[in-house]
């Protein structure tokens, strides 16, 4: 039986991007869809999150390489560059309102799911 696959909804379509086993609990990977970089994470409990890979504070595409964890009850990823925390569910930055370029410090988020059995 094949391992569970992870799917991301991008521009209205579900894309299979990797196997569930490719993800380390508490760690992320980067996904490239249509030229768009997305950071995909799995938490210790098995929850999945997908946010933009670009760090608004450093302009580098590195959030998939950040450490995950929690702040209060909020699941977060910490930017590996300047360590701001982002809410993995909403993309909101918990430390600063706006990025250095004046735009709101908020990551795009993508719907993510384990592939339903029917698609196998």
């Amino acid at each position: 039986m094949p391992a569970d696959e992870i799917q991301l909804a991008h521009r209205g379509t579900w894309h299979t991007v990797c196997r569930y086993d490719d993800l380390l609990p508490g760690r992320g990977v980067a996904v490239l869809l249509d030229g768009e970089q997305i950071a995909l994470f799995r938490d210790r409990a098995g929850g999945l999150y997908a946010v933009q890979n670009r760090d608004p504070f450093s302009d580098a595409h590195v959030l998939s390489r950040g450490i995950t964890g929690s702040r209060g009850d909020i699941p977060v990823v910490f930017s590996p560059m300047y360590k701001q925390a982002f809410d993995l569910r909403t993309g909101a930055c918990l430390d600063e309102e706006s990025a250095p370029d004046g735009t709101p410090a908020r990551l795009l988020v993508w719907p993510v799911r384990l592939a339903p059995p029917a698609s196998r």
Binding site: L24, P25, G26, S58, V62, R65, I67
Partner: peptide, 21 residues
């Protein structure tokens, strides 16, 4: 094992992250 998920990105890739990624 689990240690991998704890490391800072530098330790995670055994290299030093620099401007631009």
């Amino acid at each position: 094992g689990e240690q991998a998920a704890l490391q800072d990105t530098n330790d995670h890739f055994l290299a030093n992250i620099q401007r631009g990624g």
